[in-house]
């Protein structure tokens, strides 16, 4: 599976929303077995992605001075 590096990585909130949606669908009584299996697989993928995101994430700080922004 080629890694689609060009596409911007989905942000945390998008992945979390997708995961919440998957859990909700799996809770539905009438979920079809095949659908459940692919939902489950995608859910596992997202959990691992989020865990990876959280463990490796660093913050980036860009510094500006007041004099740089005067007269904005």
């Amino acid at each position: 599976m080629t890694k689609d590096t060009a596409r911007p990585k989905p942000r945390y909130e998008e992945l979390k929303a997708e995961l919440d949606n998957i859990v909700e669908q799996l809770q539905a009584d009438d979920v079809d077995v095949d659908a459940a299996l692919s939902l489950y697989k995608r859910g596992r993928e997202i959990v691992e992605q989020l865990q990876e995101y959280l463990k490796t994430a660093e913050n980036t700080v860009h510094h500006l001075d007041a004099t740089d922004v005067e007269g904005t």
């Binding site: 913050n59 980036t60 700080v61």
Partner: peptide, 20 residues
């Protein structure tokens, strides 16, 4: 602020403007 932010969460882009 930065210490707690770094401890709690990552992958943030922070633009700091240093003012008086």
């Amino acid at each position: 602020f930065i210490k707690i932010l770094n401890a709690r969460w990552g992958r943030l882009d922070i633009d700091v403007v240093n003012v008086q």
